[in-house]
Simulated assay, not measured.
Amino acid sequence: MRKLRFTKMHGAGNDFIVIDGTTHDLSQLDSSLWHRLAHRQLGVGADQILLVEKSSKPGVDFKYRIFNADGGEVEQCGNGSRCFVRFVHEQGLSTKNEIQVEVAHTVLTLKRLHDDQVEVDMGQPIFNPTDIPFDPSGLTNKQEMHETLYALPLSQNSGAHADWIAVVSMGNPHAVQIVEDLDSAPVLIDGPLIESHPAFQKRVNAGFMQIINRHEIKLRVYERGAGETLSCGTGACAAVVSGIRRGLLDSPVRVQTRGGELQIAWNGFGAQVAPSVMMTGPAQTVYHGEIDLDTL
């Protein structure tokens, strides 16, 4: 039997299976297994799977990889990064409160605070369409303060399109639109259409934001390969950055998700060089377990 030890965790309701790859060889495990493991009826169940690994970069403490519930590997996960900090502390892998972690395209700085809160330097937001990646060819656009908005067609036959979207990457791509009422927003209808729209070569996370006031929003996100999640850390960062660039929000911003609250700070309005986005939020351990992989 092939036994795999894991920890079930969540960050504001965004739930993860976290696995220690620093002492175990996980190279023989593939995306189909991650998909089965994440299945909520037939496996453990999770939005994403996080693999903790050793980093090859000098001065960097760890590396971690992220797999969505469909088994596909993605670049970044804000809520997962907070859970990562708590995991390495609880597993005795590090005693440092501030940790440098390598992800797909960058190095994150993670800092454990009091009351199970974790602060993450999420790095600079990316706006260049090519780097997101996003192809705006043929799309109607308009300028709103420092943000370019796009009318994204969702159906060629009906002519329907998403409300004006802002496109930004936090290491993974996001399309953010403002809605008047989040509870009635067509997240489960438009979300899959936006996620798989051909303008996004690597698919996209679809964010739906309701502005409460200049320092508070509500947010729902339909994530690539996972569907709607209770919270999305990078989605919260992308939404706040977009709102600030549109002149609608002021840093810091409290983000209410269905799974909990996040605090996002970004002082990049009108800046020549975009500063890092700072995210603070909870990280909780749910339970530790072991599963026989041959049963999946």
Rank of each mutant, 00 (worst) to 15 (best):
Gln263Asp: 03
Ala236Cys: 05
Val255Ser: 00
Gln272Asp: 15
Asn213Pro: 05
Lys63Leu: 11
Glu73Met: 13
Asp294Arg: 07
Tyr222Ala: 03
Asp25Met: 13
Ile189Asp: 14
Asp163Phe: 08
His10Gln: 10
Phe208Lys: 04
Thr229Phe: 08
Ile217Gln: 02
Asp250His: 11
Gly235His: 07
Thr7Arg: 13
Glu223Met: 01
Gln124Thr: 15
Tyr150His: 10
Met278Pro: 00
Ile49Leu: 06
Pro125Met: 15
Gln263Leu: 14
Ala46Thr: 02
Trp34Met: 07
Phe269Pro: 00
Val273Ser: 05
Glu75Cys: 03
Gln177Ala: 04
Asn68Trp: 02
Pro125His: 14
Gly59Ile: 06
Gln117Ala: 08
Cys232Met: 06
Gly207Leu: 01
Pro129Phe: 11
Asp115Ala: 13
Ser137Ile: 06
Met209Lys: 09
Leu42Gln: 06
Ala38Gly: 03
Met1Ala: 14
Thr95Ile: 11
Asn14Lys: 07
Trp34Arg: 00
Asn14Cys: 04
Gly289Asp: 05
Asp292Ile: 11
Thr130Trp: 05
Asp47Val: 08
Glu144Asp: 13
Ser27Glu: 11
Gly78His: 05
Asn157Ser: 13
His161Gln: 12
Glu228Leu: 07
Leu293Ser: 09
Val179Gln: 01
Gln284Ala: 12
Gln100Phe: 13
Tyr222Gln: 03
Ala271Lys: 12
Met278Ile: 15
Asn213Arg: 11
Gly71Met: 03
Ala46Ser: 13
Asp183Lys: 15
Glu216Met: 01
Gly227Tyr: 11
Gly43Asp: 05
Tyr287Trp: 14
Arg86Tyr: 02
Tyr150Asp: 03
Asp183Tyr: 08
His174Ser: 02
Leu149Lys: 02
Asp190Cys: 08
Asp190Leu: 15
Gln201His: 05
Ala236Thr: 09
Asp181Gly: 02
Ser56Tyr: 11
Gly123Ile: 08
Gln263Val: 09
Ala265Cys: 09
Asp190Pro: 00
Lys57Gln: 11
Ala274Leu: 09
Leu4Asp: 01
Leu110Glu: 06
Pro186Arg: 06
Phe87Asn: 01
Ile19Met: 04
Pro252Trp: 05
Glu98Ile: 14
Phe200Gly: 00
Ile212Ala: 03
Gln284Val: 13
Ala12Gln: 01
Asp115Met: 09
Ala236Ser: 12
Phe16Tyr: 15
Gly159Val: 12
Gln201Gly: 00
Arg82Ala: 04
Thr140Ala: 14
Gly78Met: 06
Val187Ile: 15
Asp163His: 12
Gly233Glu: 08
Ile165Asp: 00
His39Gln: 09
Gly281Glu: 10
His161Arg: 12
Leu230Gln: 14
Asp250Ser: 12
Lys202Ser: 10
Gly233Cys: 05
Phe84Leu: 04
Ala160Glu: 15
Gly260Lys: 13
Arg112Lys: 15
Leu139Gly: 05
Lys111Trp: 02
Ile178Gln: 02
Glu228Tyr: 06
Lys142Asn: 09
Phe67Leu: 02
Gln210Pro: 01
Arg254Leu: 09
Cys83Asp: 05
Ala166Tyr: 10
Leu33Gln: 08
